[in-house]
Design a protein around this nucleic acid. Structure first.
Length: 888
RNA sequence: GCUGGGGUGGCGGAACAGGUAGACGCACAGGACUUAAAAUCCUGUGGAGCUAUGCUCCGUGCGGGUUCGAGUCCCGCCCUCAGCACCA
């Protein structure tokens, strides 16, 4: 055993042993309970960053812990390797997306291996390889068959200069990332998946996972789905040139319908489109302006001024018979509800603003319960919209009813009379999966002049991406420029046809990858349902909370579809979810404003922190920052990323401190759900801890080698105290890990090591019982350290047992604690007078309540306080404290 | 604006179920070892005060409340982070 702790040497050694012994390779086994530990798979951007290290350190700690607890642990990894950055690299540097991606994967796999994560590498999956995306296409066809995949017209970000569609990131700040010109919106036919068909299930099934998922994630998903119950009401349209009979509106507040002063429709509404040519030039002008505004890409930071105009059309309120003007308004969205609303300014903030601006009448029809008996309309000038429920007034026969009851009854009434019905709408939209990009799974659809839209045959999958494609970032989709790809024969009639050139959103790949891990080589199916039924659902999923909504809702949706086609037999794929906080660092940037949207955030140009001159105050707060050229810069604390230049390279950490120390520190530094501001200074403490353990182990190694069982029944006070600390630590670490805390168990291990250092008997003088206590302490500590610093733990353990098989092949189990050994014999009890601590006494842990009270009252310090005072009460909390309440 | 988290030493953070606030680590200071430095080991470290080997007072964002007792529970503020933002 080396005198010193050489991290790199032992890390390399154990990584090799693990690989040779295949200790992390798992198969289905009925002998052990299974545990599926899953971390979100990385995008191969080039290098790991500290956020990855954190994510995978958590997952690896859990996987190790469960293995040591006797579980059959599936712990895989793979690559989310389709996506835009590969194309950006192709444009900027002329590398092929495939080469760029594979190189990055090789680089990052090397980093993962150097960190020593315990993956079953045989199960590694690659989203960009045909054997994987074949089944993206397979799923697409299944969905198409079930009517869950369809095409519709929608808006995309469009750069007129480059003639290209842009992702939201490429259009950030409203400017094109390539040419810097303002981005507009363009209508395009795109493929959608009908996630809205599962809206209710996505909502209802949350009760199956609410115990295992963070409430904040479920809440965000609930908001994202945005279920809202209300009613449709048809307003008959008076004579209009296009001859449209009625306008259907959606409202959650049908009880306020007597307060409607207008119908407001979106500029895209059919009523507007079909009557457009008959409108006055003034109306046309406003409609055009609203439509144009909607095409601009702006930040949503600033609230848009409400605008609109009376179209001159008239509609009739079916409840009151009142004739109302039909307005067009920029605040009504065509995509939600029916694209038309009734404007009730008295009881809706937006309608209130709108009515104020255009001087429309405001009629109150709901009032507070206490006002309802003598409600005087004239006096009640509303200063703001009254949006609460209340009592109906000015509402014909419905006056006097409570909102809640009126909503129900008025909806029923509308239904009976045939001009409305109860309705539920969702904020959730169908999932647009079309991308006008190269680096994604091609959508397996063919356009035939004769047969129309034709799905590919399953036996023709995968539809492979052509490899040599010129990617410029300009013009239409890259695949459209590849004749060998585009030209094909119709799967139905065999005639020359054209292939769909859109590829799929990469969120498709990540919807089902963790099912594929279970059966990664399957050529005919995405996976064998029998195999998957052993491993899934995922027992613990770990990842960043930036995926709280999109990825996690899409994969829940995907699971329900897989259930409906018989691939799985459960509703929810993930039992427990842990969302870790981001690893962040300081960033420095200048801001380029968007001329079209001066109030927006604009575009940020980042400077690497080591190039920036920074002034700080004594506490380290930044006072000012300037670029190398002397330009003043802004600063922030943001997620670490390559593009922002604030990343820390894990390789440098491994080189300087070792993988174990890096992993240990990132778990110790903060609770996993907190944001972690990266600060390198603290990592030294982790190295020191490992070195301290190394040294004391080395000192005791020979002495404890033979002390496997206690030879004596009696232990010295020192040995007893050490054993107590050992068993207390086992208890703490176990409890902490079971509740997914990772910083506190490491602190507990540090305490145990401190206690080992406090053991004042030297090995030469140690009795066998002392050696046993020391062995118990060190052996427990080493095994408990494994989840956090596996290489170091394995190395020390190998010296303890004298073989190089490693813990798992030695059948090592996480230590169990014995409660009677963990119990303190003597405890310190504070004695309070009126809630303030005045003395402390040491007593036996088994002391009787009466005796403790007696000791407290006779304590010499306490006597001074209570002499000549009247004692009102004495509160004795067993094993905690004594509080004596006296008259002051 | 709405919703949800969160404010504890110089810093990251501990604290069972209302019961000794500040575990553990970083940083800092002092000491031992050393020709010296690093490393290591030991000690100290919330603030203020005093008649200083001890004792007193204050202290978990602010103001109130409940309680024998509040970082923890309740009410009202302030700040902060995150998500959503014309969703009818």
């Amino acid at each position: 055993m080396d005198e010193k702790y050489f991290a790199k040497k032992i890390e390399k050694k154990w990584q090799q042993i693990w690989e040779e012994n295949k200790v992390f390779q798992v198969e289905i086994s009925q002998e052990k309970p299974k545990f599926y530990a899953l971390e979100m798979l990385p995008y191969p951007s080039g290098n790991l960053h500290m956020g990855h290290v954190r994510n995978y350190s958590i997952g690896d700690a859990l996987a190790w812990y469960k293995r040591l607890k006797g579980y059959n642990v599936l712990h895989p990894i793979g690559w989310d390797s389709f996506g835009q950055p590969a194309e950006d690299a192709a444009i900027k540097r002329g590398v092929r997306p495939l080469d760029w991606t594979e190189n990055n994967i090789n680089q990052m796999r090397g980093q993962l291996k150097r960190l020593g994560f315990s993956y079953d590498w045989r199960r590694e999956i690659f989203a960009h390889r045909p054997d994987y995306y074949k089944f993206d296409q397979w799923f697409f066809l299944k969905m198409y068959e079930k009517g869950l995949a369809y095409k519709k017209l929608t808006q995309v970000n469009w750069c007129e200069t480059c003639k290209a569609t842009l992702s939201n990131e490429q259009a950030s700040g409203g400017l094109c990332w390539r040419c810097g010109n303002p981005v507009t919106k363009k209508d395009m036919q795109q493929w959608f998946l009908k996630i809205t068909a599962y809206a209710d299930q996505l909502l209802d099934d949350m009760k199956e996972i609410e115990n295992g998922w963070p409430e904040k994630v479920l809440k965000r998903q609930r908001d994202w789905i945005g279920r809202s119950e209300g009613a449709y009401v048809d307003f008959a349209l008076k004579e209009n040139p296009a001859g449209i009979e009625k306008v259907r509106i959606f409202t959650t507040r049908i009880d306020t319908i007597y307060g409607a002063n207008a119908i407001v429709v979106a500029a895209e509404h059919p009523v507007i489109e079909s009557n457009f040519e008959y409108f006055s030039s003034e109306v046309k002008e406003v409609v055009r302006k609203i439509l144009a505004e909607k095409r601009r890409v702006v930040d949503h930071e600033v609230e848009q001024e409400k605008e609109g105009i009376d179209t001159g059309l008239k509609a009739v309120n079916p409840f009151s018979g009142e004739e109302l003007p039909v307005w067009v308004g920029n605040y009504v969205m065509m995509e939600y509800g029916t694209g038309a609303v009734m404007s009730v300014p008295a009881h809706d903030e937006r309608d209130f603003d709108f009515a104020k601006k255009y001087g429309l009448p405001i009629r109150q029809v709901i009032c507070r319960i206490e006002e309802s008996t003598n409600f005087e309309n004239a006096k009640s000038q509303l200063k703001e919209a009254f949006t609460d429920y209340g009592i109906l007034v000015n509402s014909g026969d419905w006056s006097g009813k409570h909102s809640e009851q009126a909503r129900k009854e008025m909806t029923e009434f509308a239904e009976k009379k045939g001009f409305g019905k109860a309705a539920v709408t969702y904020r959730l939209r169908d999932w647009g999966i079309s991308r006008q990009r190269y680096w994604g799974a091609p959508i397996p659809i063919v356009y035939c002049d004769v047969c129309g839209i034709v799905p590919e045959k399953y036996e023709n999958l995968p539809i492979k991406l052509p490899e040599n494609v010129e990617i410029t970032g300009m013009g239409e989709s890259p695949l459209a420029k590849v004749p060998e790809f585009v030209n094909c024969s119709c799967p139905r009639c065999g005639k020359l046809s054209k292939r769909e050139t859109d590829t799929m959103d990469t969120f498709v790949d990540s919807c089902w990858y963790y099912f594929r891990y279970c059966d990664p080589q399957n050529l005919n199916m995405p996976f064998d349902p029998k195999i998957v039924s052993y491993w899934t659902p995922v027992d613990q999923y770990i990842g960043g909370d930036d995926h709280a909504v999109m990825h996690l809702i899409y994969t829940r949706f995907w699971t329900k579809v897989m259930r409906d086609i018989g691939l799985v037999n459960f509703n929810e794929p993930v039992r427990k979810l842990l969302t870790q906080g981001m690893v962040v660092g300081e960033t420095f940037f200048e801001v380029i404003p968007n001329p079209e949207d001066p109030q927006g955030k604009g575009k940020r140009i980042y400077y690497p922190p080591d190039s920036v001159k920074v002034q700080r105050d004594s506490k380290g707060k930044i006072l000012s920052a300037t670029s190398p050229e002397g330009k003043p810069l802004q600063w922030a604390i943001e997620r670490m990323s390559k593009s922002k230049g604030n990343g820390v390279d894990p390789d440098e950490m491994i080189e300087a401190y070792g993988a174990d120390a890096t992993r240990l520190f990132i778990l110790f530094a903060a609770p996993v759900e907190n944001e972690l501001v990266w600060n390198e200074a603290g990592i030294e403490g982790s190295v020191r801890f490992l070195q301290r353990l190394w040294r004391i182990f080395r000192k005791w190694k020979d002495k404890i080698a033979e002390a496997k069982t206690p030879s004596e029944q009696t232990f010295s006070q020192q040995a007893k105290a050490l054993r107590r600390k050992t068993h207390q630590t086992i208890k703490r670490v176990t409890e902490n890990l079971e509740s997914l805390q990772f910083n506190t168990p490491i602190a507990a291990l540090m305490e145990l090591l401190n206690a080992i250092y406090d053991f004042k008997i030297e090995p030469e003088n140690a009795k066998e019982s002392d050696a046993f206590a020391m062995r118990e302490a060190l052996e427990s500590l080493i095994i408990m350290l494994t989840p956090f610093a596996p290489h170091t733990a394995e190395e020390l353990y190998s010296h303890l047992v004298g073989n190089q098989k490693g813990m798992l092949l030695n059948g090592v189990r996480f230590p169990d604690f014995e409660l009677h050994l963990a119990k303190d014999e003597e405890i310190e009890i504070p004695i309070q007078i009126n809630g303030k601590i005045r003395s402390k006494i040491k007593v036996s842990a088994e002391i009787k309540e009466e005796e403790l009270k007696e000791l407290a009252l006779t304590d010499h310090k306490i006597k001074e306080y209570i002499s000549n005072k009247e004692i009102n009460r004495v509160i004795v909390v067993p094993k905690r404290l004594v509080n004596i309440v006296i008259k002051p």
